[in-house]
């Protein structure tokens, strides 16, 4: 990291997440360019952007899963890349690709995660049971995760991210390909988490959901923030989807009117 040594270990302000000059390039392609971001505590924060905007890369760098080329990240006042162990203790993560130890059962995976986090065994047992109940996974507790549906995998992944009671929760596309019932139970848990004073940062493509859930939102495009602030301010009187399309310049029209669509005679 090029800025190592010049970054103050303590956070500049009392935010749940602060990012300064975060930068990452793969080969010659810049994925995240000098990103600055402040997220107040107890906020439901949405990070939106088209595919390849750099959302996943940003979340990975904020959670200590991908080393940045430059920049600093403070989570709950701790600089992640100076004190990985302390920072990870207050972070919960749900990655987009959901790569879990799938040949453990739901209950075994929760136990495994709790003990990895250094929690006492009886605390792990109690919390596992509660989490399985709240996510409606009790019946599937003894089934291997590899046999779970996509929605069930998202829920068990989220349960793993929550088991140590993190102060800041990072979720990459938590609602993608999730049925409405599972989405509702995930939302309920996240809202309860916010009420307890924690912060949730999540990326999503579902604009209506971000608009409805989030206090604050940031729109990323080509590795940069093109808008950030309270959701109402960012959408500026229109829907978030309209604001999004306007800001990332995605509204293209074609010369063709596709008059042939729907003309097949079988």
């Amino acid at each position: 990291m090029s800025t190592e040594g010049t970054i103050p270990v303590e956070a500049p302000g009392g935010y749940a997440l602060q990012v300064r000059g975060l930068h990452k390039a793969y080969g010659g392609k810049v994925a995240v360019a000098a990103l600055d971001l402040d997220i107040p505590a107890s906020t439901f924060f949405g990070l939106v952007g088209p595919n390849g905007a750099g959302k996943t890369t940003t979340l990975k760098m904020c959670t200590g899963l991908l080393r940045p080329d430059a920049g600093a990240v403070w989570v709950d006042g701790t600089e992640v890349w100076h004190n990985l162990v302390r920072a990870k203790a207050v972070i919960g993560v749900l990655p987009e690709d959901l790569l879990l130890f799938e040949r453990l059962t739901g209950s075994e995976l929760l136990t495994f995660n709790g003990l990895l986090r250094g929690l006492p065994a009886d605390t792990v047992a109690d919390r596992s049971q509660e989490l399985l109940e709240i996510f409606g996974l009790t019946d599937a507790a003894a089934t291997m995760v590899i046999d779970y549906s996509h929605g069930m995998k998202k829920k068990i992944g989220l349960a793993c991210a929550l088991i140590h009671g993190p102060r800041v929760l990072f979720l990459d596309e938590p609602f993608e390909a999730v049925d409405p019932v599972s989405a509702r139970s995930i939302r309920t848990v996240l809202e309860r988490h916010i009420e307890s004073g924690a912060t949730v940062v999540f990326s999503s493509h579902v604009m209506e959901l971000v608009e409805r859930l989030c206090d604050r939102v940031a729109i990323m495009h080509q590795g940069r923030l093109v808008a950030e602030g309270p959701t109402d301010e960012v959408r500026a009187g229109t829907s978030l989807e309209d604001a999004f399309v306007r800001l990332v310049g995605g509204e293209r029209t074609s010369g063709s009117d596709f008059g042939w669509l729907g003309t097949s005679s079988g």
């Binding site: 920072a87 993560v93 995660n113 990895l116 986090r117």
Partner: peptide, 9 residues
């Protein structure tokens, strides 16, 4: 293996 990495410790 990200689960072990994310857990810190």
């Amino acid at each position: 293996f990200w689960m072990n990495v994310a857990a810190g410790g």
